[in-house]
């Protein structure tokens, strides 16, 4: 079973619908015991980092999550859930969970597209991910596949945690983390077949990790 973290700010139902479609058992929950017994956790999110962090810390979920991450519970952060794993987010000047070193920054409005026009913010639409290292999440996904992004802030982790980058005026980090603790800036649940495949790959990893224990 995969747990979808319920912290009110996120859009959990899209993730739930995608997992249902894939036949992956799942539970939207904020219950620490359910989170601990799940094979893995999906940390979804839309909206603002400040509001999301407030929701997490007011229920004590921030400490629950951190402790599960230290225990190597597999986790996939999506969009705001990807940004919040870092130390700090410029959005609402927010101190975040600090499980991956780095920060989250507003897109630089001086960045320009190939034709010289300044980038539009939010970065909204389909874009590719160029992997900088092998990643289980992307197994059997073609390199030209595109994913759906919608965000105004982008992760900037310490370089050794960069897994994939995306070009929008300049390259920014769109996938970061380490094996078993992954964060993607795009929305796999809204990225058609490649996104569904990524969720399947995460689930497969969670089951393997459980068997290995």
């Amino acid at each position: 079973m995969l747990a979808i973290l319920d912290y009110k700010a996120g859009n959990q139902t899209s993730v739930r619908r995608a997992l249902d479609h894939l036949g992956i058992a799942n539970q939207i929950t904020a219950d620490p015991d359910q989170l601990a017994s799940a094979d893995g956790i999906i940390f979804p999110g839309v909206g603002a980092a400040g509001q999301a962090m407030d929701e997490l810390s007011s229920g004590g979920l921030d400490e629950v999550l951190k402790s599960l991450i230290w225990q190597e519970k597999p986790l996939l952060g999506i969009c705001v859930g990807c940004q919040i794993l870092l130390d700090y987010c410029e959005e609402n000047d927010t101190r975040t969970l600090a499980v991956i070193p780095g920060e989250c920054r507003l897109f630089n409005p001086a960045w320009a597209e190939e034709d010289g026009t300044p980038i539009r913010v939010p970065h909204m639409g389909w874009n590719r991910v160029e992997l900088k290292k092998d990643c289980t999440l992307f197994k059997d996904i073609p390199s030209e596949a595109e994913f759906y992004f919608v965000h105004s802030y982008h992760p900037a982790p310490r370089p050794e945690f960069v897994i994939g980058v995306t070009m929008y005026g300049e390259n920014f980090c769109s996938v970061h983390g380490r094996t078993g603790l992954w964060a993607v800036q795009f929305h796999p649940e809204k990225s058609g077949a490649p996104g569904l495949k990524l969720l399947q790959n995460f689930h497969a990893y969670c089951l393997e990790a459980r068997h290995a224990q």
């Binding site: 619908r17 759906y148 919608v150 809204k190 058609g192």
Partner: peptide, 8 residues
């Protein structure tokens, strides 16, 4: 639609 279509 939301339960069958996985694009925005």
């Amino acid at each position: 639609v939301a339960s069958q279509i996985f694009i925005p």
